[in-house]
Simulated scan of single mutants.
Amino acid sequence: MPTPTLDYVPCPDAAGGHRMAYWQWGDAAAGRVVVCVHGLSRQGRDFDVLAQALVDRSPDPIRVVCPDVVGRGRSDWLKDPRGYVQPTYVGDMVVLLEALHRQAPIADLSWFGSSMGGLIGLGLAGSPKLSLPSPVRRLVLNDVGPVIQWQALQRIGGYLGQTGRFETVGEAAHAMWTVSAGFGAHTAEQWLALSTPMVRPLDGGGWTLHYDPAIAVPFREVTEQSALQGAAGLWALYDAVKARTLLVRGARSDLLTHDTALAMTQRGPHARLVEIEGVGHAPTFVVPGQVDLATAFLLEP
């Protein structure tokens, strides 16, 4: 599989700024742009298979951009961990879109967001006062919605921030599988490909997970009550979305209930709902059927 190009965009913060890394596939001058944003403890190389499929199948030149959200992958770590919150992430994506637009004007913008990446997409597509170079025309929300189940947040909090030390990449991949069974069935080759960008080498040997353990600091401050209060704001964002919207839910998801997903088909952008059997939180979009689903939607005229 071809390797994407790696670039960086400088983003402001109260401590003097940080760099956000992003991976780019396809034609850097293309006006058609798809941005794919990962989940809470993941990184942009999660989308290698989907990005290559979009490039291969698009009838027109296309750019697929997959950022490493700050604190993850090749991006900088924040000096103040209290910055690992939604407003920072949305602001960084606005800066990224402006940089991409300067590189080549964006004429058609789509957004694919897995879990946290979907919430960032809601922040962009559901905030009409934001100055974007192009409106989001197609929005894929991968196993996330305005109501996030408290039990799922507790489960994620049980491992978030524990980046560990591993002798080999294979050992790290096995450890990640123990907390990622909800991703559904994968071949050994598929899982190793997903896992290899998830680690970084340690000085003195061995490997650790790629992200800043401090991303867990603001996450641990979330309470069941604050999560419920946040849902009202997320519904307001969702109801303001004008983009054509595809909602994908793992049929076994503990984060997005079927009832919430159904409500999302009946209000706001009236999302088209597809539930994937045998998968929980969240589909990875590396297996053929999932890739076909996403590319067909994102490549619609």
Rank of each mutant, 00 (worst) to 15 (best):
D46Y: 12
G39T: 09
G39A: 11
I148Y: 00
D60A: 15
P135L: 04
V279L: 09
G17F: 07
P133I: 09
V147A: 13
V179F: 03
E221P: 03
L40N: 05
A29R: 15
M264R: 12
P133W: 11
Y159G: 02
A261S: 13
L139Y: 10
A181G: 11
W77M: 04
V287I: 15
G39P: 12
M176F: 03
V179E: 03
C66G: 09
L234Y: 09
P59E: 05
A175Q: 03
Y89S: 01
W25H: 08
A175G: 01
P59R: 06
A214I: 01
P135D: 08
R42F: 04
V144I: 15
A107W: 13
G164K: 02
L228S: 14
T3E: 14
L298H: 05
R74M: 12
Y211I: 04
P135A: 09
P59Y: 05
V222A: 06
V179Y: 03
H258D: 13
I106H: 13
L40R: 11
R272F: 03
R272K: 15
S226K: 01
R72F: 00
D48E: 06
D212C: 09
A296N: 14
E275W: 05
F112R: 07
L237H: 06
K129P: 00
A172V: 03
G182I: 04
R102D: 14
G157E: 04
S180T: 01
E167F: 01
A271N: 12
H258Y: 15
L194K: 04
D143Q: 10
G206T: 02
A263H: 13
A193L: 07
P105H: 13
G123F: 03
L130V: 12
T178D: 06
V287Q: 15
P10Y: 07
I62R: 08
F285C: 06
R138P: 11
W235A: 05
W235V: 02
C36D: 07
